[in-house]
Design a protein around this nucleic acid. Structure first.
Length: 127
DNA sequence: TTTCTTACA
DNA sequence: TGTAAGTA
């Protein structure tokens, strides 16, 4: 499927529940790679949104930016100026209704973290 | 009006 | 992270 980057900051903010500040920050940290057309404005795709959602969960789960970065590797398999995104994805939420607020596609990671929390003490920190 | 960047609280 | 300033 193709990822059309037509989602504006406003949309991204509403869809992810993150602040524009956070989204831009994650962008700077190379956690997401939104398109950049029209007056330097960011344009996200559904994939970017989902990626943002994963990042959000990871961060709120107590992980640092570096941790997230190591888990979600830079997907650009660029050629030269124009790069293709092939983190096209793992799951298509296009026609799936989200009835849960935990759209993590990476379930194994989640399980691992949860298990870890059980065996070792767990932390629930920063935001 | 909204987003962008830079910079400060 | 939030918010202000000055743009585009």
């Amino acid at each position: 499927m193709k990822a059309k980057k037509n989602i504006t900051m406003k949309e991204a903010k509403e869809k992810t529940g993150l602040s524009s500040r956070q989204i831009r920050y994650y962008d700077q940290q190379d956690l997401v790679f939104p398109g950049r057309s029209r007056g330097n404005q960011r344009l996200f795709s559904e994939n970017d949104i989902e990626r943002l959602l994963k990042i959000k969960d990871l961060i709120t789960a107590g992980n640092s930016i570096e941790t997230v970065r190591s888990k979600l590797r830079a997907p650009e398999t660029q050629t030269n100026g124009q790069y293709e995104f092939d983190y096209e994805n793992e799951f298509d939420y296009s026609d799936v209704k989200l009835d849960s607020l935990f759209p993590v596609s990476n379930r194994s990671e989640l399980i691992k973290r949860l298990s870890r929390s059980n065996s070792k003490g767990f932390k629930e920190e920063e935001e």
